[in-house]
Simulated assay, not measured.
Amino acid sequence: MFTGIIEELGAVAAIEDKDDSAVITIDAKGLVADLGLGGSLAVNGVCLTSVRDEASSPPGSFTAEVQGPFTAEVMGETLRMTGLGALRTGDRVNLERCTPTSGRFDGHVVQGHVDGCGELLSRDDHAEWSTLRIGIPNRLAPFTALKGSIALNGASLTLIAVSEPTEPDAWVEVGLIPATLNHTTFGDISPGDPVNIEVDVLAKYTARLLSFGTDPAGPAQSGPAQPAASAETTTLFNSTEPTRQGADHD
């Protein structure tokens, strides 16, 4: 589990493309000094598993220039359904280690299981802060709320505006202070760039419970049926299709 507090800006050191996957090596500086084989790191909000050994890494990944190498195998589904597929060598990425039991909980519950990929629609830079509008998949709109939490490229952010249910294309807006812009990849993001989206897990579980129309703590109620989630919400969380894209492990 993560909290969406970005700890470090890393850089893509190497990418080895395979048939339907890729091996990505990140220069994570000192963040992964004690992260061994099987450890977790959120890269732009995607929970990836370390395969940290030279035998499984692309040639040239482990060099003196790469201060802290983190190597992960990324399957094709993750590459297609998140912004990781658009990464190139040298690109900067947001990094967060998993939350220790003794750590502070400064953001919100972030699983590293990306729900979909959106894109930056517009950016308004004000004197002391910036407003970003991100287009999101319509199926995720029911899980967004004004002043609610969302993880964008792994960063825990508060929504300052959301699209209306009647609008044909869903979007959300966030306001970013200079500290966030300087400490994350949002400082140099441009319209059209992909953005990994993970909606609030509490909203997802609420929708899942409502989709059954029964009280999970007791027998089915004899009164009027409970309100059900929308058809596309029910499809998203009841389908047997892989809908929690972005996680290499659950």
Rank of each mutant, 00 (worst) to 15 (best):
V93I: 11
S156T: 10
E65P: 12
D115L: 03
A127H: 09
A161M: 05
T82K: 03
E77P: 00
D115W: 05
V110M: 15
E128N: 15
D91V: 06
G148Y: 10
T89C: 14
S57Y: 00
P142F: 02
S57I: 03
S163K: 11
R139E: 08
A64T: 09
V66S: 14
E54N: 14
R139F: 03
G90C: 07
S156Q: 13
A141N: 05
L87F: 00
G68Q: 13
P58F: 00
T82I: 01
G60F: 00
A145V: 13
Q67H: 10
A141P: 01
I160M: 08
E164F: 06
F105N: 06
T89A: 10
S156K: 06
R92H: 08
L121G: 07
F143R: 05
L132K: 10
R104N: 12
T166W: 05
P165C: 01
G154W: 08
E96G: 14
R133A: 01
E119N: 13
G148P: 07
V162T: 14
A86L: 06
F70K: 14
T78K: 04
F62R: 15
K147M: 00
L120T: 12
D125H: 08
R104V: 12
L95G: 02
S57T: 05
P165R: 01
A161H: 12
A86K: 15
L121V: 11
T158L: 01
E167T: 06
E73H: 13
E77D: 07
A72Y: 01
A55E: 14
